[in-house]
């Protein structure tokens, strides 16, 4: 039995029948998305503020005490995601290896 077969990359092989020759475009065709990046980001911040404020306007049915805090879900989501990304970067330091690691 050979080495643990962990393919390092998505299997990209010119011989692969599934791989067509990609067509590369020339120049950047602006799209709605590329033109409105700033607007999207501002929209995101505005929405975030609005849903946070909505917390003031409904009665909570809580199972746990922290749910009653103002904006708990928003806070938890924000902190959770930041932690996730930062820890993942640490994890990468720990687990990243060069591509031919398994072949060596």
């Amino acid at each position: 039995m050979s080495h643990p077969p962990v393919p390092t990359e998505p299997i990209f092989n010119p011989e692969d029948p599934e791989v067509p020759v990609p067509v590369r475009g020339t120049g950047d065709h602006g799209t709605w998305f590329t033109r409105h990046v700033r607007g999207i980001i501002i929209g995101l911040y505005v929405t975030a503020f609005v849903v946070l404020m909505l917390d003031l306007f409904y009665a909570k049915h809580s199972y746990f005490s922290e749910e009653d805090w103002f904006g708990f879900y928003g806070f938890y989501g924000f902190v959770g995601c930041v932690t996730l990304v930062l820890l993942a970067k640490l994890l990468r330091k720990a687990v990243m290896r060069s591509e031919d690691y398994w072949d060596a």
Binding site: L54, D55, Y58, H61, Y76, G77, F78, V82, V85
Partner: peptide
């Protein structure tokens, strides 16, 4: 579909998205 659940879930998701966006920025 109760207001608290909808709002809380939206809040969680939007602020998570905000976190990712802010980190990028």
């Amino acid at each position: 579909y109760t207001w608290p659940h909808v709002i809380q879930q939206t809040q969680l998701l939007v602020w998570s998205a905000l976190a990712v966006g802010t980190l990028m920025l």
